[in-house]
Every structure is written in C-alpha cells, then in structure tokens.
C-alpha cells in the first residue's frame, strides 16, 4: 500500500515539469531587443531561466546564429505568428 502511495506521489511530482515547448528560430538574436519587443506585446520573456517570475512566458536561449525560446506553457498559434513577426522584424532591421 505504501509503495503504491509513494509511486503515485512521485509521478505527481514529475508531471508538472513537463509543460515547456522549445521553439527554435534560425536567426541570430539580440536578446534585449527580443525581450523589449515581446514586452510591447504584453509578454514577459526572460533572458534566462533564473529570472523566472509568475508573469514569465518563457526565456531566451541564445545559441549564436540561432536561438531557442523555451516556454513555460504550450505555445499557441498566436504565439507562433508573433514570434515569426518579431524575429524577422529584428533581423531585417539590423541589416538596415
């Protein structure tokens, strides 16, 4: 009986850690600019996982010539459209 209870408890502890999505964008990024652009849209994007607060939507993982956005919840179609738009705006602006 105890074994069953502790197995259930263990599984329940693991489940909430499985929400994130990883979105990979094949453009170089300026994390601060990305953060500011998302902020204008009302989305709190952190520069790293340790900045997480209750309002955080996700964080940036800068990989040089590409970057990942790690979310704290499932990304929506609206999120996908927004990320595409912001990513291209920033990338194309940098080139003048």
């Amino acid at each position: 009986m105890k074994k069953i209870i502790f197995t259930i408890i263990f599984v329940l502890m693991l489940i909430p850690s499985c929400f994130s999505d990883q979105l990979s964008i094949p453009l170089s990024c300026w994390p601060i600019e990305l953060q500011q652009a998302f902020e204008k849209e009302g989305i709190k994007l952190d520069l790293g996982p340790n900045e997480r607060t209750d309002e955080s939507w996700g964080f940036i993982e800068n990989k040089g010539n590409y970057y990942n956005l790690i979310t704290y919840r499932s990304a929506t179609i609206e999120d996908f459209e927004l990320i595409k738009r912001i990513s291209f705006e920033i990338a194309l602006k940098k080139e003048g």
Binding site: I15, C18, D21, Q22, P26, A75, F80, I83
Partner: peptide, 29 residues
C-alpha cells in the same frame, strides 16, 4: 498556467493540451 486551465493553444488545436500530462515538444521555424 497548466494546460488544462488556460492557453492550451496548439495543443488544443491538435486535440491535446487540456491535461497536465502534456509532454515537452520541440518546434523549428
């Protein structure tokens, strides 16, 4: 924001997203 409560998004469109067991997914632009 647990998937079953709000913002299920793509998960919802794909028929998933309403349960806490929603797994990690990787997407590429």
């Amino acid at each position: 924001t647990p998937g079953y409560r709000s913002s299920p998004g793509t998960g919802d469109i794909m028929g998933q997203g309403k349960y806490q067991s929603d797994p990690h997914k990787i997407f590429r632009m």
